[in-house]
């Protein structure tokens, strides 16, 4: 089984050293990719990253595929506003995952990372609409093993839950109510920097996940639990061929 991941940049899912798609040594895994790997290891008993089983595709490549998708998806009674971006990206990654599955002859689980909102705090139902629209996007392409990785409002909230100095892993749900805007007073990004004692960087954050300092088993936030449950279900079904709840 392979995992295909895609994100927004180096500080979340990671980046390729030299191309749009990569795996193994060509992939510099970011903290979110390491979280995927940590959960996978717990669920299946082995790690994808060191074995070169985690593939990565860049945001620009996913966007390129998404742009060419027909038909257009217009908001209306059946589709809420502010969800098309998530729907189309999921459709694109669904297609790319299907291609990887065909080329490799292996089962593929796809994980698509997007912040729920980088401008403000997203209300709970807005976050759910975005996540659901990713699931619909994967389903639209007939791809069953798609996992939305949509932190509310952004990945710093998940990391901060583990890394905050006062009561780590406790009362983390309230972090989902904070603004995703980096320019907001005491933004999540600023809080994370304060907790770390330095500006966060991709390599440092990834190491904190790899070392277990950020423990996926202990993060109790609705957006994280939704991601983790879906990933675990897809990983198990990737092995058994049957997708659970």
């Amino acid at each position: 089984m392979l995992v295909l991941v895609s994100g927004e940049g180096a500080t979340d899912m990671g980046r390729c050293v030299a191309s749009d798609a990569c795996f193994g040594d060509g992939f510099e895994a970011g903290p979110m990719a390491c979280l995927v790997d940590q959960i996978a290891e717990c669920s299946l008993g082995y790690s994808f990253l060191p074995l070169g089983l985690m593939h990565f595709v860049s945001k620009s490549r996913v966007s390129e595929v998404a742009r060419g998708l027909k038909p257009p998806s217009l908001a209306g009674r059946k589709r809420k506003q502010e969800t098309a971006y998530f729907f189309r990206n999921a459709r694109a990654l669904g297609r790319l995952s299907q291609e990887l599955a065909d080329d490799s002859g292996d089962e593929v689980v796809a994980v698509l990372f997007r912040d729920a909102d980088r401008t403000r705090s997203a209300a709970r139902d807005e976050w759910r609409d975005k996540r659901d629209s990713m699931l619909e996007g994967f389903a639209f392409e007939g791809f069953d093993h798609g996992v939305p990785m949509v932190p509310n409002p952004k990945s710093e909230a998940w990391l901060l839950c583990a890394l905050k100095r006062v009561q780590p892993y406790r009362h983390c749900e309230r972090l989902e109510l904070e603004s995703g805007n980096d320019d907001a007073p005491a933004s999540l990004k600023a809080q994370l920097a304060e907790a770390l004692g330095e500006a966060p960087n991709a390599e440092g954050l990834a190491e904190l996940v790899r070392s277990g300092r950020v423990d996926a088993n202990l993060i109790d936030m609705p957006s994280f639990i939704a991601f983790k449950s879906r990933l675990q279900a897809c990983l198990c079904s990737g092995q058994t061929g049957v997708l659970g709840a």
Binding site: V62, R67, S73, Q81, A84, Y85, N89
Partner: peptide, 14 residues
């Protein structure tokens, strides 16, 4: 949004 959809879709989605 314009990176992944047409200008009109971006309008109606916003």
């Amino acid at each position: 949004k314009l990176e992944v959809m047409g200008p009109g879709e971006a309008l109606v989605d916003t």
